[in-house]
Amino acid sequence: MNTISESFVLALTMVANVDPQIVAVVALSMAVSLSSTLCSAAIGLPLGAAIAVSRFRGRSALIAVLNAAMGLPPVVVGLVVYLLLSRAGPLGRFGLLFTPTAMVIAQTVLITPIVAALTRQVVEDAWVEYREYLHSLGSGWFRSTQTLLWDTRWSLATVLLSGFGRAAAEVGAIIIVGGNIDGVTRVMTTAIVLETSKGDLPLALALGTILIAIVLALNLGAQGLRNWAKLRHG
């Protein structure tokens, strides 16, 4: 049997047997990526919406920076966060290096630009449509942003999902700041790296299959939600 089919069988076996170690790794992966998605939502949604409805000097430069930051190299982000959180670094006294928190921070740095840039795009499209009406109502900057975020919520759910997908699939940054410690900071992607290092390619690919299946299921769910919303809300 070749490696690929072997690993599919292995993936199915692991899922069927509810292998507790795999479950723990998957759960940590999801918890870390969900946390960083929520953090990046807290920053990126208001930021993207604020940029969408504002006109100021340097706005287009800021948008260019934001779009470029969508492709931040994970390893560089990992290294910078590592140096910040290291005992010898400025945030060293909090002792966050090699903890899940450090991984959440690194992922948040990576995906906040994605969330902010895509939110800016989505909200600005709605803003073009709503601007006169909201002005007519005397809706202020803050209330307008609120209205726009709420009215684009289904599209924004997809935006957040893109962020989540990137976070869950990323390894370069979190292996540096998390250290891939068994039971503490070992998530799906870092486990895949480790198993690849050990030459256990079927196991590595089986883990990869599970990761892809989860991300795929989430995206299908989101697409279904969006289609439903489009039908329901126009």
């Binding site: 899940p100 928190t101 959440v104």
Partner: peptide, 27 residues
């Protein structure tokens, strides 16, 4: 869930130490 995750690092489950070692000892 976020708070639980963030508390993960600081959780006083067990005393713990961090050992930096080589790939050979682990792999």
């Amino acid at each position: 869930l976020v708070l639980a995750t963030l508390a993960f690092g600081a959780m006083a489950e067990n005393p713990s130490i961090v050992v930096a070692s080589t790939t050979s000892t682990q792999q």
